[in-house]
Design a protein around this nucleic acid. Structure first.
Lengths: 235, 235
DNA sequence: TGAATAGTGTCTTTCAGACAATATTCT
DNA sequence: AGAATATTGTCTGAAAGACACTATTCA
């Protein structure tokens, strides 16, 4: 049997009973801390609990597209997404075997504030010490394996912090070096040296000065920067 | 409907028609270069061509277990595996929609030589310049999206080279610093400074001197090292 | 003027690269 | 002895941390 004949006779019903989903970790940075946007589940299982937005992957849809659709449908948000890990433990979902491809989404605080204001099914929770905190700073547990998914997202975000420009998405389009340093400190969980941080980031070529200044603060305004347009990966 | 009732009524036949597979990139290091073990496909599609070993994931099997089973069944090899990326483009397989979770496997050269000698369905091909080379050093193209899978495996291997001990698996249980340096140079694609490399690796605490010496070479024997048993991640 | 932060200069420490000198084994 | 590589020492330059000093804005 040649390949064409084989494919004509191939029956997709023979595929194994494993479903594919995506879960999205929508992150943002505000008030000096990372935050994650959680969705209150409308359906069983875990109905009424806060969880990461997710959805099943459609047959004609790429993984990233499914993640963006989940984000749009459950949080009314359009944001760039990036896959970081696949979660496939046999018992991770009570319904059936579901392999979920974990995606991160990065959003600036203003955009995410609009999304949370628009509907009441989403809540923005602070992340502290690698775990989600409620308003009273109590550790909140997520359903399914979503605590592990979030932890892995944060770990991979930290790993790639100095390797690419992905984390810039957590800030507004322009930002001061103080804000950028606060972001790096929140992600890495340690304070950084100011002159060294400034020199390193500016000389990395990943930033571009806008010439504009901060405004409205009660002290000397800082210059605003944006991610450099040029891709330095080609060097 | 409460959660228990919902789960009782849940019909797994409703899951979307997307299949889950694993593809394995079995890597080793010999003769100063990385090599990948490829499997000559016994079935359609791409029958007779060399491809990465892979298999569908069973409903009661974790992702890593599926990758190890593929390696065992198609290459007669037991080796540690590590997931690195999920590949899910809609048209990546001509049969149907298949999302494949890419896994790396690391094997030392002696073990992999036994596996290739045992059967004739596998071939060990050299990797050079990020692509597979035949014996005559010509660039060989792999079926499906396996060229992209391999490229991503190499890229992630390089990224994690100084972050964890995973790449030690590409060497025998004990090895000289010269062999380790050659491995790092092959993975990074650039030559390294010898004294700096030695100092950095020894002082990293990731290595343990065995006190044993190399033998059988026509020159001064080097001390043999092994990966340190202690996990330094807890510091 | 004072508070608060921006931005910079300098000193020190750490670490990698360059280069070379000495040590050890086998033929 | 000679070949080949192991191992170590020293010098140099680059980068980061510590600390402090000057600059700028608003109240």
């Amino acid at each position: 049997m040649d390949e064409a004949a084989y494919l004509a006779a191939y029956d997709p019903a023979d595929f194994p009973p494993v479903a594919v989903a995506v879960d999205v970790v929508p992150l943002t940075f505000s008030a000096g801390a990372l935050h994650v946007l959680l969705n209150r589940r409308a359906e069983q299982p875990a109905r009424g609990r806060l969880a990461l937005p997710g959805t099943f992957v459609r047959a004609d849809e790429d993984l990233d597209a499914a993640a963006q659709r989940a984000l749009r449908d459950k949080a009314g948000l359009n944001a760039p997404v990036r896959q970081f890990h696949a979660f496939g433990a046999v018992d991770r979902d009570p319904r059936m075997r579901i392999v979920s491809i974990g995606h991160m989404a990065v959003v600036d605080a203003d955009t995410i504030a609009q999304a949370t204001a628009a509907g009441d099914t989403c809540e923005l929770l602070q992340i502290s010490g690698g775990a989600v905190r409620t308003a009273s700073n109590r550790r909140a547990a997520l359903p399914f394996d979503h605590d592990a998914v979030l932890a892995r997202a944060l770990s991979d975000l930290r790993r790639d912090l100095d390797r690419d420009d992905w984390a810039f998405g957590l800030l507004p389009q322009t930002f001061s070096l103080r804000e950028l340093q606060a972001l790096h400190e929140a992600i890495r969980g340690q304070s950084l040296n100011k002159p060294a941080f400034r020199k390193r980031l500016i000389e990395s070529g990943r930033l571009e000065a806008t010439g504009e200044m901060e405004t409205g603060k009660g002290f000397r305004p800082a210059e605003l920067y944006r991610p450099a347009r040029i891709n330095h990966a080609a060097e």
